[in-house]
Design a protein around this nucleic acid. Structure first.
Lengths: 119, 119
DNA sequence: CAGGATCCTGGACGATACTG
DNA sequence: CAGTATCGTCCAGGATCCTG
């Protein structure tokens, strides 16, 4: 979703597009959801999201960091320790992520009730 | 974003992921944003989103329809007339889309203020 | 522990032409 | 007007192995 190369769908770039650019990666929504809960270490994410590879986790976290959403705190120890948290601005995403969480729940119910009609 | 084939990042499928599956296509956010404003015809979208092709518009609308978010009303006339609108359930997305729109605006400001630090 | 480096594949997306 | 049908590209995402 990031780095659209050929411009935007709306003239001047629709803000909704911009938002989806930031949170729309395959794992970013979930990462952000877990970060609402507080600081997390690299391997904690791996445990929380069994499907993700280290490579993807690293990439998505790096993008969120570059976008100013996530703060990366390195503790120069051995073994290494790195903590990820939301930046101040990243926290402004909380209402959106929370709403998306609620909506996702409701959507599951909606699908159950309509599985016949909606094939 | 749709039809994840290899399961979900969180066990049992994180609701946030499910939501992004529905609204996370390249054009869906914008399409939904314009639909908040009211019913739209096929070519109206084309005018509103100069970048999209008919093929992509058709595909994304079809997915939103299959997901129960968008209603497609066909008027059997010549020339054809088709109107797209949000379903009742689709309208429950309004708070999310609106928030994403606001957040996107704020994010642009945020980027301006921090263009030095955030490279 | 927290990643980086490589290699590879499928499917999202696009360009273009055609149609009822 | 509102799409479909083909064909082609490209890169997000994954598998695997390596490292300070």
């Amino acid at each position: 979703m990031r780095n659209r190369k050929k411009g935007y769908g709306c003239p001047e770039g629709c803000p909704v597009e911009g938002t989806l650019d930031v949170i729309g990666g395959k794992w970013k929504g979930v990462i952000l959801f877990y970060l609402l809960d507080g600081t997390k270490r690299f391997n904690e994410f791996n445990r929380l999201m069994p499907g993700i590879t280290k490579r993807m986790l690293s990439l998505q976290l790096k993008e969120l960091e570059e976008d100013g959403i996530v703060h990366r705190q390195v503790y120069p120890e051995i073994p290494p320790k790195v903590e990820y948290s939301l930046t101040e601005f990243g926290r402004t995403l909380e209402p959106i992520i929370s709403l998306m969480n609620e909506w996702g729940e409701n959507y599951k119910e909606f699908l159950k009730e309509n599985k016949r009609e909606l094939k």
